[in-house]
Design a binder for these strands. Structure first.
Length: 324
DNA sequence: TAGATACCTTATAG
DNA sequence: ACTATAAGGTATC
């Protein structure tokens, strides 16, 4: 095997532009790449500011790495500690969007109370740049699913069909490659409790593994054409396509119109509540400041997703949750 | 071309 | 305990 021991190091977060919060970033339902080492992910109302270890097997990334790398990270205040099978700094900058100037991005948000509150509460939440294939599959699985179960399905696929990497006598399962996933039967996927998504996952994995299409190819197009390109995959409509564009392919203007956001639009930005997906999408994108509209959406979604308890408590109480 | 409906499975609220 | 219900939609008629 290429590597069998962890190296370690630290990224000084004072060197990046704007704040960073690892827990808010990884547990906000945009990325299903990471697993919390203590297995506590999503099992309670997660907020931000925690200091947990997260681990993943990052696949090769164009222009950065040509082999998988096992990475473990933890945030301690302004230090991002890492252990990895190689130098993961550029990979982390890429995956966690440490290259974004988050302060400038906040400045691009419209002056709005809901957004302002969400930004205060989840200060430092960044978008992610997940690898395209696993992002595509995870959002296909997201249909009619809670965040915790999407994460669970993603981890099951890795455990069942992915390549195992052993480091310091610990095992880490990579997310399956397109061919590893395409090789599975639909019933094998149903056994992981994917439900009707099983055939979508299999057929999409086949399309990618045969070279018929690849999610990364969408990036050759401008935004709306890229979204259309992605909808050729089975199980991918406009909403899932927008998720892949926003959380994997660098289209920070994409605003996935899920049920939560649609409700928020109707209640909060009624003027943007148009007839079809295309028109509402254009209106809310414009309303949220254009280029970084998807960034603003992610704050709003995470804030609203708090639902039940967190949503109903007042702001002072919410701050208590954040601080503790 | 719009508009309903079925679709898998499980966690959680009653 | 036990049953409804809803969960970051999409494909199909």
């Amino acid at each position: 095997m290429d590597h069998s021991r962890f190296e370690s190091g630290v990224i000084d977060l004072r060197d990046i532009a704007g704040p960073f919060d690892l827990q808010a970033t990884l547990e906000s339902g945009q990325s299903y790449l990471w697993d919390r080492a203590d297995n506590g992910m999503y099992d309670s109302m997660s907020v931000s500011g925690g200091s947990h270890w997260y681990e993943t097997v990052a696949p090769p990334i164009d222009g950065i790495t040509d082999t998988p790398i096992v990475i473990r990270v933890r945030q301690q205040n302004d230090q991002l500690e890492w252990e990895a099978t190689g130098d993961p700094v550029e990979v982390l900058e890429h995956l966690l969007r440490l290259d974004d100037d988050l302060t400038s991005i906040y400045d691009s948000f419209p002056d709005d109370e809901l957004i302002k509150t969400a930004v205060e509460v989840f200060h430092g939440l960044r978008l992610v740049r997940d690898p395209p294939f696993s992002a595509l599959i995870s959002f296909i699985c997201s249909a009619q699913m809670r965040v915790s179960r999407i994460h669970q399905m993603q981890m099951s696929m890795a455990d069942a069909f992915g390549t195992i990497h052993t480091v310091d006598n610990e095992s880490f399962a990579a997310f399956p490659t397109p061919s590893q996933l395409a090789a599975q039967s639909e019933s094998a996927l149903r056994d992981l409790s994917l439900g009707y998504r099983a055939s979508y996952v299999k057929r999409t994995a086949e399309m990618v593994s045969t070279g018929e299409a690849h999610p990364a190819t969408a990036a050759e197009h401008e935004y709306e054409a890229a979204r259309d390109y992605l909808t050729q995959f089975v199980g991918v409509g406009n909403k899932v396509a927008d998720c892949v564009l926003l959380f994997s392919l660098d289209y920070t203007e994409a605003v996935p119109l899920d049920t939560w956001i649609q409700t928020a639009i109707a209640e909060h930005f009624p003027a943007c509540d148009r007839d079809g997906y295309l028109e509402t999408s254009r209106a809310i994108r414009d309303r949220l400041g254009g280029r970084y509209a998807g960034y603003a959406q992610t704050y709003v979604f995470y804030y609203l997703r708090g639902g039940g308890e967190v949503w109903s408590v007042d702001i002072a109480n919410l701050w208590w949750h954040v601080r503790s």
